[in-house]
Simulated assay, not measured.
Amino acid sequence: MAKPSLRQLDIFAQMAAAGSIARCAGDLGIGVEEVARDITALEMRLGYKLFDDLHGTARLTQAGRKTAQAMTLLEQDSSEQAPAAKESPPENLRPPLAGTARRSVTLGAPPPVFGHFQEALAAFEEANEDVAITLDLHILLAAQAREALGEGKIDIAYFYALGEPPDLPSRYGWSEPLSLYAGSTHPLAQQDMVSFREIEAAPMLAMEPRNGLRQISEDALQRGGITPGMPALESDNLFEIMTALRQGLGWFAAFGPMARDMGRVEGIRRLALETPLPAIEIRQAVGPRAAETPAVEALADYLFL
Rank of each mutant, 00 (worst) to 15 (best):
K3R: 11
D10W: 03
D10R: 09
A25P: 11
A25V: 06
Y48P: 13
Y48M: 05
Y48D: 07
A58P: 14
L60Q: 06
E80M: 13
E80G: 10
A82H: 08
S88T: 12
P90S: 13
A101C: 06
S104D: 15
L107S: 08
P110M: 08
H116K: 15
H116S: 15
H116M: 14
E119K: 12
L121C: 14
E129P: 11
L137C: 13
L141E: 03
L149S: 08
G150F: 03
D155Q: 07
Y158C: 10
A161R: 01
S170M: 12
S179V: 04
S184E: 09
P187M: 08
L188D: 00
D192T: 00
S195T: 04
R197D: 10
E198Q: 14
M204T: 03
L205K: 08
L205T: 02
L205R: 09
M207V: 00
E208G: 00
G212V: 00
Q215C: 05
Q215E: 05
A220T: 02
G229P: 13
G229S: 13
D236H: 03
G250I: 03
G256Y: 02
G263R: 07
G267Y: 01
L273G: 02
A291E: 09
P294I: 03
V296E: 02
Y302G: 12
F304L: 12
